[in-house]
Amino acid sequence: MRAVLGAGDTKLKVEQLSFYYGKNQALKDVSFEIPERRITAIIGPSGCGKSTLLRVFNRMYDLIPSARAGGKVLLDGEDVVTTRKLLELRQKVGMVFQRPSPFPMSIRDNVAFAPRLLGWSSSRVKEVVRQSLERAALWDEVNDRLEAPATSLSGGQQQRLAIARCLAVSPEVILMDEPCSALDPVATLKIEDLMAELMRDYTIVIVTHNMQQAARVSDYTAFMLMNPEGRYGELIEFAPTANLFNQPQDQRTEAYITGRFG
């Protein structure tokens, strides 16, 4: 059920989160709060653990046997790290990847795939396909060729299809892992416009190595860095985007956003 949270209230509360790949620590003591129906960007140089952090939020790391998380990530008060309701969690927290990975089937079936497997009625699936494609700003481009293979779409269209696919299972949070890094500027702009649109109904967390993108689209920004001694990622600063870019509190943040390293 839709939470009763107002826009801006805390949706995801990260508390003292640490993360390990086997013996290697990848994150240490990350704490911050992601607000409901806002766009939160996570930025930082390669290897700072920003993708790892994102993959904790929907337990994508479960695929890696040696991976282990400590601390808490509270989603509407329930701990993501220890929850046993993994499938519900992943429906609630959708994810869009760097590569759109279209399923090798028609455009319609890509969106309908999960709803059908979840056993929804065919009329409901039909409705969801249309709604999701509309919300992903793809309906007008594909409604006359829903049976065409998804691989026939352009890269930008494929990425919007991936978003539609994710919307189809009614998530509340959408995680985006560098969703535009393989796209040209025009397609990137379309995705960014779409994010602004989706923000009204969804909490969005985007990992990007493109600082300009973070500044353009996000309301809040988290800046992460790899600790040079411990080789683990840590959160340096978290603030409303305008504040972080205009008056960074930490020297390292300032150095990064002014392009002195990273």
């Binding site: 695929l63 499938l87 969690l89 992943r90 609630k92 990847f97 990975s101 189809a168």
Partner: peptide
């Protein structure tokens, strides 16, 4: 990526 995309939808 295909595997992850499927799992991210909450499918077993």
């Amino acid at each position: 990526g295909l595997r992850e995309s499927g799992l991210a939808l909450g499918l077993p």
